[in-house]
């Protein structure tokens, strides 16, 4: 498994921490899935450390914390939020999210590259939430990112991998870069699909937090990423147009 800025994760599942029915259920979702990374938003809870109690709960999960800049629309906001996150969680990791469009929550890739450069120069280890665009990916790597996080589909949409062709191309284009599918996952099959394509991890939030039973769904997602990862390693067969009998016909005794 590839490392994320030198850190090896226990498994390829990253979970968000928003929208759960309660902190108790959030905690059990992490326990039941064994997810190794928790993303946390600071933007809204932020001002003056007022979110401390909740953040302490997240810290107590004992997993790697990946603070995010969710809800930021400008480079300035994102950089300030990242700096605050570094203080609060004592980590260089930052999931850089720069929203460019209100309805699709599509990343603004131009500002993303700019913010990634500023933060990298400031010593951050940036996990950029990006599209499947290869050139943008390249620019982010040039800006100092060592991980890319393309979307599967718009945030919270639960549609799975909208553009499988482009995601395959991305995997092929950046064979050595850790790639995480971030956003758009709705079902375990989507998460397994991402891993089968060779992605290194899956980050999701809504699919678990807003499920009727987040604890069971978190567990299902953990099993799915594991299944997808194993399948990838096991070198799946190629699809073909005609049947291929698993028992050869030639050489069988004719009994008639």
């Amino acid at each position: 498994m590839k490392t994320f800025y030198g850190t090896t994760l226990p498994n390829p599942l990253m979970l968000g921490t928003a929208q759960y029915p309660s902190p108790a259920i959030l905690e059990q979702a992490f326990r039941s899935s064994g997810a190794g990374v928790a993303t946390v938003s600071l933007r809204r809870e932020g001002a003056g450390g007022a979110g401390q109690t909740f953040w302490t709960m997240i810290r107590d999960l004992g997993v790697h914390i990946l603070p995010n800049t969710a809800g930021c629309h400008t480079v300035k906001e994102a950089v300030t939020t990242a700096q605050m996150a570094r203080e609060v969680f004592d980590t260089k990791w930052i999931k850089l999210e720069l929203i460019g469009h209100t309805d699709s929550l599509q990343p603004d890739v131009f500002q993303l590259v700019e913010a990634a450069r500023i933060l990298t120069e400031d010593g951050f280890q940036v996990f950029p939430y990006t599209t499947e665009d290869l050139i943008v990916g390249e620019r982010l790597l040039e800006a100092g990112c060592e991980v890319l996080m393309p979307w599967g589909a718009p945030i919270g949409s639960g549609r799975g991998l909208n553009n499988e062709y482009a995601l395959r191309a991305m995997r092929a284009e950046f064979p050595d870069v850790p790639l995480v599918i971030d956003a758009g996952i709705g079902l375990p099959s989507h998460a397994a699909h991402a891993m089968e394509l060779g992605f290194d991890a899956v980050l999701l939030n809504t699919a678990v937090a807003r499920a009727g039973d987040p604890i069971e769904m978190a567990q299902a997602m953990a099993m799915a990423v594991q299944a997808g990862q194993l399948a990838r390693q096991a070198d799946p067969i190629e699809p073909r147009d005609m049947a291929e009998a698993s028992t050869p016909v030639v050489g069988k005794a004719f009994l008639s």
Binding site: R44, E45, G46, A47, A50, G51, Q52, T53, F54
Partner: peptide, 10 residues
């Protein structure tokens, strides 16, 4: 909001 700041609305 998971915040303990009750001073003002945003």
């Amino acid at each position: 909001i998971e915040s303990e700041d009750s001073s003002r609305i945003t």
